[in-house]
Write a protein that binds this DNA or RNA. Structure first.
Length: 554
RNA sequence: UGCCCGAUGGUGUAAUGGUAGCACAGCAGACUCUGACUCUGUUUGUCUAGGUUCAAAUCCUAGUCGGGCAGCCA
């Protein structure tokens, strides 16, 4: 897919200026997930941004796991994150790293701060630390342990590492300024004691560095030039820089913040996504209704569509909420070109073509993509009995209903013209079946007299078909912003009860050959992808997105 | 009533002191063997008030509104 014409965002401008000033021999970026959850479309924005910069400047892109909290992290997440990043097309090559790779170096740097009199071991409890920190409007107070001699701090910190203390008994803190207006600078915690098994370092450590102490230094070790993160880290930047300036790091990275992605009609926070899964509101992290990468993948989204979306949403510092319609637009645009067309009837209504010979089959060629002859064609079988979409027939149609109605002629796509001759109903008055007559001269979809037929509808043979389970998805939430809740309600109260509808449908025989994950267009109905739940005897399709429609029922 | 950041149509995003543009969405039309695609047209915008300037979305000041910050989470 062609990249949309986009002007440079503010980060590119910063890089351009720095490059012009000769500040960097090359550009290095990174995507730094914590392996404690699944990636979502918001992460995709960050991945595309970071990977895109490295690509555009012929630099390097690193994937680095920020695994400094063993109690929350797991290799299961490492694996899923790697899969998702790779699927999106962000190739990290050999540059796969873990913050835990740097634990020893980080520890040495902590010692360096201690020796310089810039860090101390504090024995205040967590509650006391909070109390001493002050509030947003009032300065904090210094810890009574703040003025310990360097030697004592060193001995204590080494004892912390040696496992001589219980969890929470002591922490290592930076000595900065308890009256600083920026809370992050009020003697932040650098290390805490956690006798916990780490998914990579096992039991080698019982003290673990905090994010602030690990992140910037990890950037420095890897030679990251631009450490791009989201807005909430903006106030951490002074601390980020303080470490870089007070430690003998090999390199000075620069932190730049941008606004994270928000999407209408969904939620993006890990906590809420986890709650949806845990409480069974969705079937899992990869439920096609989820904004997770795995959910979008299962839904039928393509990496190209997501990349295009990320390039279109732009990068800036103001909070934003992107219309879900843009994501859908990007998918349609991609699939329009590459998805083979098929016919499937989601809500079947039987039609008997009374003048069509019984027991015979006529096969008509249908292009796999009318816009791209190179994609070839398949044959669709026409028989005396067929199914059409129930909504494509109206007994008493309004003026601009270009579909089937009594006495009205329509084209069966790729096949022939039929005219409805009779409507059959049950005792309750429900339409049970239609009878129609076809024009033998219209075979192939046109007639010698070139008469115009306004409507073309899709159809499937009632005898030559494959049964399908089709899962129709709609927005997971009924409101654009489920995070904006009324008094006394939660985001769960806005879950769309119609977010999933399962229908038993019928499809043309060619559907039998659908490959796992294959994306198809069911003509006039939308784009669909074969679900992993699919079995040869029971094909399951997910509706990825419907087709735009300018048809407005009266 | 602390500190930091932000404010351009419905939603995003450009314009870097000199014509407010683009995309999505919406609306109207053309085309059409998908009411799709494509094409055409079109509604809607610089938070407010002062100031600097020949000229301000852009620079300055004040205000208003929105977001973030008091984990031994990231």
């Amino acid at each position: 897919m062609a990249m949309a014409e986009t002007s440079k965002n503010f980060i590119y401008e910063i890089i351009d200026e720095e490059l012009a000033a000769g500040k960097h021999p090359s550009i290095v970026t990174r995507f730094p997930p914590e392996p404690n959850g699944y990636l979502h479309i918001g992460h995709a924005k960050s991945i595309c941004l970071n990977h895109g910069i490295a690509r555009d400047y012929q630099g390097r892109f690193h994937l680095r796991f920020d695994d400094t909290n063993p109690t929350k992290e797991d290799t299961e997440y490492v694996d899923s994150i790697k899969e998702d990043v790779a699927w999106l097309g962000a190739d990290w090559g050999k540059n796969l790293f873990f913050a835990s790779d740097y634990f020893e170096q980080l520890y040495q740097w902590a010692l360096h701060l201690i020796d310089a009199g810039k860090a101390f071991v504090c024995e205040l409890s967590a509650e006391e630390v909070r109390e001493y920190r002050g509030t947003l409007k009032t300065p904090g107070r210094e810890s009574p342990y703040r003025h310990r001699p360097v030697e004592e701090n060193r001995r204590l910190f080494e004892a912390m590492r040696a496992g001589e203390f219980a969890d929470g008994a002591k922490v290592l803190r930076a000595k900065i300024d308890m009256a600083h207006p920026n809370m992050n600078m009020r003697d932040p915690v650098l290390y805490r004691i956690q006798h916990a098994h780490h998914h990579r370092t096992g039991n080698a450590w019982c003290i673990y560095p905090m994010y602030d102490f690990a992140h910037g230094q990890s950037d420095a070790i890897e030679g990251i030039t631009h450490s791009i993160c989201t807005l909430e880290f903006e106030e951490h930047r002074p601390l980020y820089n303080w470490f870089i300036e007070n430690l003998p790091v090999p390199h000075h990275p620069r932190q730049i913040e941008f606004a994270r992605l928000n999407l209408t009609h969904t939620v993006m926070s890990k906590r809420k996504l986890l709650q949806l899964v845990k409480e069974g509101h969705v079937t899992g992290w990869d439920d096609p209704r989820m904004p997770t990468i795995s959910g979008l993948r299962r839904r039928g989204y393509t990496p190209a569509a997501i990349r295009e979306f990320c390039s279109r949403v732009g990068v800036a510092k103001r909070n934003n909420t992107i219309d879900l319609a843009l994501l859908e637009f990007c998918l349609r645009q991609d699939l329009e070109a590459l998805a083979p067309r098929r016919m499937a009837v989601l809500d079947p209504l039987k039609v008997t073509i009374t003048n069509f010979p019984e027991g015979t089959v006529e096969r008509f060629p249908g292009p796999n993509n009318p816009g791209d002859p190179a994609m070839g064609e398949r044959e669709v079988p026409l028989t005396r009995e067929i199914y059409i979409e129930r909504e494509d027939f109206l007994e008493d149609p309004p003026k601009k209903f270009f579909r089937l109605a009594p006495g009205v002629e329509v084209r069966l796509r790729y096949a022939c013209y039929i005219t409805c001759t009779e409507v059959m109903k049950d005792a309750a008055g429900n339409i049970t079946e239609l009878r129609a007559a076809f024009d033998p001269e219209s075979r192939g979809g046109g007639t010698p007299d070139n008469r115009r037929v306004k409507g073309t509808i899709h159809w499937v043979s009632a005898t030559e078909n494959v049964p399908l389970e089709v899962r129709l998805y709609e927005n997971l939430f009924t409101v654009p912003d489920p995070d904006d809740v009324e008094e006394g309600r939660t985001f769960l109260d806005y879950i769309n009860p119609a977010s999933l509808t399962v229908v038993q449908a019928v499809g043309e025989p060619a559907l039998r050959d659908a490959a796992p994950g294959e994306r198809l267009q069911f003509e006039r109905k939308g784009y669909f992808a074969l679900d992993p739940d699919s079995r040869p005897e029971r094909l399951v399709f997910n509706r990825s997105v419907d087709l735009r429609s300018s048809y407005k029922p009266e």
